[in-house]
Design a protein around this nucleic acid. Structure first.
Lengths: 213, 213
DNA sequence: CAGGATCCGCCGCGATACTG
DNA sequence: CAGTATCGCGGCGGATCCTG
């Protein structure tokens, strides 16, 4: 084996020894919303090939970033504690990237999941609300409780509200905010308009300005 | 040209489009301590080759991460505002890496500069002190003023204290702290023992625990 | 000496095909 | 569904040479 290394006694260089190869951090990003199976990762990472995904998963498992969880039918890859500890780094890189990002190009793939990951960082805090999302048929949950925001895949029991719509419309809702008329185009709302305002307002709009403390 | 891209409308993916290739983030790290010339970067990045450094510098300049500053004799590469905005991401990755790093192997190169970069993040705040370092003949400065820590290359006028020694001894001082007897082995001190304790105590020891607020 | 350019060999990556 | 096998190409590493 003997992976390529910078051979520098430096935290950053060591991190890049493990994370610097292509796709690795994007796999971590996708797992931040919850465990996923091989085929789900493959679909969620447009452009990666099967051999490369398999190789990366092996390397990441040997580096203890991920582990195979569950058994039988529920078998899936999930982050270890060490892998989850990458969340601040992913948020810092993501913030820098979102600051430079312009309008999506025609070649850009989109996923509401990329956005949901960034919402964990954009949460302002101080809200109490449990929401369910159904974007393009896939369920997600946002549970806001004081300073903590738990955002991931799947439903949540006892949700206060529910949004259903196309991923691109839901993404626009969180990226651009509610329109003046308070009607979110193309989105089916189960809940009050006030809850919707609370949900959307719980997150900072973008990364152009300084995020409120 | 047309660099390789993940083609994902996601901040992290966009950041990795720019930063994901080999050596790029390490160049930014080295420039965080101040501008450097081509040959200085080459010496400071053991293992990089001349062609690759030249290529990376071109790419980074076209991405507006760095710019050629100064003129004539003082010409050097320096970070732009956008490049300097990477400091939080570098600190986050560095913290993760320092947490996993063990003892240096025999192949590991060392540099007091890698450590100084991490000190900017490890600064506890609340100290007022201007110190000069001379490690392996190279001068550095640490100016601590309240919440701000300015750490970089070169001297600082009106330093309160001065340390001189081998880089490895100075690195050990900040990584392991002052020995019980308060005598820093192999280090020449201009200043009081109290100042030395203040300086060393102004930074957290490592990344194993949670850094104090 | 600073700041590259050029050539070459290799391996990481991407695409496709195939297997348990 | 969850990977392995194979192959071509381009990015990378190493060395050398060039120009102000």
């Amino acid at each position: 084996m003997a992976r390529r290394s910078y051979d520098q006694y430096c935290g950053l260089a060591r991190a890049l020894d493990v994370l610097g190869e292509r796709w690795t951090l994007l796999i971590v990003r996708n797992l931040l919303l919850g465990p996923q199976r091989y085929s789900e990762l493959l679909r969620g990472l447009p452009g990666i090939t099967t051999n490369l995904l398999a190789k990366r998963l092996q390397e990441m498992e040997s580096e203890a970033l991920i582990e195979r969880g569950g058994s039988g039918d529920g078998a899936a890859y999930q982050l270890t504690t060490s892998g989850r500890a990458l969340e601040p780094a992913i948020h810092a890189l993501g913030r820098w990237g979102w600051q430079r990002i312009g309008k999506p190009t025609s070649r850009d793939r989109r996923s509401v999941e990329w956005l949901l990951v960034s919402l964990r960082r954009r949460y302002r805090g101080g809200t109490t609300l449990a929401a369910e999302l159904e974007a393009d048929g896939q369920p997600y949950h946002l549970v806001l409780r004081g300073d903590a925001a738990e955002i991931g895949r799947g439903r949540v029991p006892g949700a206060d509200m529910r949004l259903r719509g196309k991923g691109i419309d839901i993404a626009r809702l969180f990226l651009e905010g509610l329109p003046k008329d308070g009607e979110a185009a193309g989105i089916e709302l189960e809940g009050t308009a006030k809850q919707l305002r609370t949900l959307v307002g719980a997150f900072t709009r973008g990364d152009t300005g300084t995020a409120p403390a």
